Amino acid sequence: MIAALCEHYGPPENLVLRELPDPAPGPGEVLVEPSRVALNFFDTLIIENKYQVKPDLPFSPGGEFCGKVMALGEGVEGLAAGQRVAGYCSYGAARSRVVLPASLLTPVPDALSDDRAAGLFITYGTTMHALVQRADLQKGETLAVLGASGGVGLAAVEIGAAMGAQVIACASSREKLDFAQRHGAHEGLNYSSEDLKEGLKRRTGGKGVDCIYDAIGGAFSEAALRAMAWKGRFLVVGFASGKIPKIPLNLTLLKGCAILGVFWGEFVRREPEAHRRNMARIFDWAARSAISAHVDDVLPLHDIAKGLNRLKERKAQGKILLSIP
């Protein structure tokens, strides 16, 4: 098989392609041949040893994929050779053969293409957990999404709209806002030209925002928190800006609000049944086009560095996929 490998920590340009022996599935495991692997922002961190997950070298980046079952390990039921599946593996998917536990695979509906199925786990799974289990988002509430045109941002826009929230997309350009509004956002706020706190206050009639979805961090976090409604929920999803904010905790007292961490990988491990319910709902929405699962670009495996750099530079709108030979 062929694999994109991180042999030394560093930038995407350090990744190399290597030929490796084909793996075999053990008990409870499945051998899958990926056709598409989705890249995510955390892939840019894990290859530089800046992420909470620290795999042994060498390893392949890529935490989610779509492909077909090649072989089943002992004791695996409910799957068959040749069946289309999508899966989540945290890292290790950027290769032409992947082995992982059957419990981490989801059958792909016929109506859903490999392109759209490959990127549903991490961004949409994270967002579903954030809005359902963490924020308990209710129909009619306001949801502000920071970085609304990126992978997790777009997922938050679409899932928030599907849940009946009034979604305010926040991004750094008119082009990004137009993109988010085409995918379900009700309003847009350009925080490169408008004050974020004041803009959110105006768009909620002075009430403030019920729920803030923050995958950006930096100075935007405190500004958004200052625009939060009474008993609002602030979701800490990530820090794409590269800066972890220091929040004045008196703001939570004054607003009676909650700051909620979103650690999807740990949720999957601790609450597998809730995770499976979330993913079944997401795949159903995607098959019915209630969410777009929008793909920005599909690149060949040898262009993995190009794809990761686009994520680092926050130039992607939706998912960046790798086509696996």
Rank of each mutant, 00 (worst) to 15 (best):
V295T: 15
A240D: 06
A240G: 09
I244Y: 04
N278P: 08
G265S: 15
E7F: 05
H8E: 14
D303W: 01
G205C: 09
Y191F: 15
G205P: 07
S103C: 04
A227Q: 06
F59T: 02
G75Q: 05
W264V: 10
P12Q: 06
A229M: 11
T126E: 09
L5N: 04
I259R: 03
I216T: 10
R203I: 04
L254W: 13
A161G: 09
L235G: 03
P325L: 12
G78V: 06
P61Y: 06
K246L: 11
V30G: 05
A130S: 10
F267A: 13
K306I: 13
S172A: 11
D296H: 15
L15W: 00
A287W: 06
I304V: 12
L254M: 14
L72Q: 05
C257F: 00
I244R: 13
G10I: 12
W264N: 07
L249R: 05
R116G: 04
L131Q: 04
D178N: 12
A219K: 15
A240H: 00
M163Y: 14
E141G: 05
G205H: 07
Y51V: 03
E158S: 09
A185N: 09
G238W: 02
D214W: 10
L131W: 12
E33D: 01
E29N: 01
L39M: 09
L196C: 12
V132N: 11
P58V: 02
I259Q: 00
M279N: 01
S173C: 05
L249Y: 10
A258I: 06
L299V: 07
L104W: 11
G78I: 06
G153C: 09
A135G: 00
R36G: 01
K197V: 00
M128E: 14
R277S: 04
M279P: 00
A156M: 11
T252Q: 12
G164A: 09
V69T: 07
L299C: 03
Q133K: 10
I47Y: 00
P55Y: 08
D114I: 08
G125F: 00
V157G: 05
L154C: 09
G78F: 04
L249M: 13
V295W: 09
A38I: 13
V209F: 13
A316P: 02
A171T: 05
V85I: 12
V262E: 03
L235F: 07
S103R: 15
P58H: 10
Q138N: 01
E19K: 13
Q133F: 14
R95P: 04
F42S: 08
A258P: 00
I244A: 11
V237K: 02
P109W: 06
V32W: 10
I168G: 06
A185I: 02
I122Q: 06
A165I: 03
E141L: 03
P300T: 06
G218E: 13
Y51R: 13
P245Y: 02
L146F: 10
F239H: 12
R314I: 08
L5C: 01
Y88R: 04
Y124R: 04
A215M: 08
A93K: 03
T142N: 02
V53A: 14
M228I: 15
R277A: 15
Q138A: 14
S96I: 01
A286Y: 01
H129A: 03
H302W: 02
Y9R: 09
L177K: 07
Q166L: 10
L143N: 07
W230I: 07
